[in-house]
C-alpha cells in the first residue's frame, strides 16, 4: 500500500461501517405497542441491507400482530401473512422458529386450519431445534406453542415446563453475539413464560421466583408485570387457600 493511501483509509472504514442497530432491538418482545411501532418505522428507515434487518422486522410484526389482533383482526392477519411470506424465504434456525410462532398466531385467525397449521409449526420448531439446540429463543417459542396446544394434542403446561426450563438454562449460558443484528433476546422472556407455565401447573412459589427474576432483569417488562404477575399472584392466593388448615389454630 502506498503511504498516500493511508489517508484514504478512515474514509473506507467509515463507508464500510453499518449503522448501529436501533435501540430496543434486543428487547422487542418486551416493548409496548408504541415502542413497537416506533421501532417498526425506525427499522423501515434503516439503510442496512434488508437481509440484516429481516429478523428484527419480522419479530416486531409478530409482536404487533399479537397485540392488535383483537382490535383490528383484518389488518393484523394481513400483516401476519406478509410476515409469513418474508420468513418462508429464510432457512436460518431462528427464522424457522419465528415462522412456527407466526403459524401459531395464524391458528387464532383460522381455528379450522389448526389441524394442518399446528403440525407444520411443530415441524418447524423441531427442525430449528435440531439446527440450533443451544438457542434459548427457539426453545422458548417451541414451549409457548406447546403451552397453547390443547392437552389432548400433546400440549399443556406440564409438557411446556421442561422446554421452558431448558430455554432459561440456554439463555443463562448464551454469550452476547458478535453480530449486533443477531437475535439476542430471550432471558427475561423465558423466565416470564416459565412463571406463567408454573402458575398454570400449580407450582405457585416457583412461579413467583421466576417472575420476580424476570422483573429484576427488566422492571419495565409489561407482559411480566401486567399479565404474568397477576396470574402468579392468583395462583399463590389459590394455593394458600387450598393449603390444609391447622386444626389447632396454632399455625
Amino acid at each position: 500500500m502506498r503511504p498516500s493511501a493511508l489517508f484514504l483509509l478512515p474514509a473506507f472504514v467509515l463507508a464500510a461501517q453499518e449503522p448501529a442497530p436501533p435501540a430496543g432491538l434486543e428487547r422487542i418482545a418486551r416493548l409496548d405497542l408504541d415502542g413497537l411501532r416506533q421501532l417498526q418505522a425506525v427499522l423501515a428507515l434503516s439503510t442496512v441491507p434488508a437481509e440484516r434487518k429481516a429478523y428484527g422486522e419480522a419479530q416486531v410484526a409478530y409482536q404487533l400482530v399479537a397485540m392488535t389482533r383483537a382490535k383490528d383482526p383484518k389488518a393484523a392477519e394481513a400483516m401476519l401473512d406478509r410476515t409469513l411470506k418474508v420468513l418462508q424465504a429464510r432457512r436460518d434456525p431462528e427464522s424457522l422458529a419465528l415462522r412456527g410462532a407466526c403459524l401459531g398466531l395464524k391458528i387464532g385467525f383460522q381455528p379450522g386450519a389448526a389441524m394442518s397449521l399446528a403440525p407444520e409449526a411443530e415441524g418447524l420448531f423441531r427442525e430449528a431445534r435440531s439446527l440450533a439446540p443451544a438457542s434459548p429463543r427457539i426453545a422458548l417459542q417451541h414451549a409457548v406453542h406447546v403451552l397453547h396446544t390443547p392437552e389432548f394434542f400433546g400440549g399443556g403446561a406440564a409438557r411446556a415446563l421442561p422446554l421452558l426450563e431448558a430455554a432459561v438454562r440456554a439463555a443463562q449460558a448464551e454469550a452476547a453475539p458478535k453480530d449486533p443484528w443477531a437475535p439476542a433476546w430471550g432471558r427475561a422472556e423465558a423466565l416470564a413464560w416459565l412463571a406463567l407455565a408454573q402458575a398454570e401447573a400449580g407450582r405457585a412459589p416457583a412461579a413467583r421466583a421466576s417472575v420476580e427474576a424476570a422483573l429484576a432483569l427488566d422492571p419495565a417488562y409489561a407482559f411480566a408485570r401486567g399479565v404474568v404477575k397477576p396470574k402468579v399472584d392468583a395462583a399463590l392466593a389459590k394455593s394458600t387457600a387450598q393449603a390444609p388448615k391447622d386444626p389447632d389454630g396454632s399455625r
Partner: peptide, 13 residues
Amino acid sequence: ALLVLLEPEGRGA
C-alpha cells in the same frame, strides 16, 4: 421524533 409506519388496511377495505 415520532416515526410512524402505516399498514395497508385489511383486505376488505
